[in-house]
């Protein structure tokens, strides 16, 4: 079986029952994607497949053969962090750090969904060409990523700064 993971071709033979999450963690020792529920209820296992975010715990690795998978390890590393990773540190968008890789992967995909003009449940006008990156949009779109430490404010600040710098500046000015 073959996948492209963080740009590299990976060949492994796994049990058909193995989830993409367990392939990453237990076979490839890519521990960035986390297991928090193993049932699609927390988002800690979020990775990107062909640029879209999914819950890797609910994905059978066998079904995702041939796909391009990016994990938190593929976004940046200490010393060469992705701008969003830096913003998470700056805005304290985490405490224990366990949900964090999932939040960040999810947010990277969220940004591209917004760029594509994809609406959310809180989008007033479903036919609008562009959607403003408001805190409410960000909160609804990120609601599939639980943070029990409650670092939600910091996460939203990190996302807003990274993906809507103008809105962030307005907020600072207002404060």
């Amino acid at each position: 079986m073959r996948w492209t993971i963080n740009g590299a071709e990976v060949d492994e033979t796994v049990d058909v029952r193995t989830s993409l999450l367990d392939l990453l963690r237990e076979r490839l020792h890519l521990f960035g994607a986390k297991k928090g529920c193993d049932q699609g209820a927390c988002g800690a296992c979020t990775v990107l497949v062909d640029g879209r975010r999914i819950n890797s715990c609910l994905a059978l690795a066998v079904q995702y053969q041939g796909r391009e998978i990016v994990t938190i390890e593929g976004l940046g590393a200490p010393g060469a962090l992705h701008p969003l990773q830096k913003a998470f540190v700056e805005h304290d968008g985490f405490q224990c750090g366990y949900c964090t890789p999932g939040q960040i992967c999810s947010a990277v995909a969220m940004a591209s969904e917004l760029r594509d003009g994809a609406p959310s449940y809180v989008t007033e006008d479903l036919t609008a060409e562009t959607i403003d990156v408001t805190p409410e949009e960000v909160r609804e779109r990120m609601s599939g990523n639980l943070c029990r430490c409650g670092a939600y404010n910091g996460i939203v600040d990190a996302l807003t700064e990274t993906y809507a710098p103008a809105a962030e500046a307005d907020k600072r000015e207002a404060a």
Binding site: L30, F31, G32, A33, T71, I72, E73, L75, G76, A77, P78, G79, L81, Q85, K86, F88, V89, E90, D92, F94, G97, T100, P101, I104
Partner: peptide
Amino acid sequence: SRIDGPLKVSGK
């Protein structure tokens, strides 16, 4: 900022 922040945000 957290000294372990870079490790946590990169899954390390």
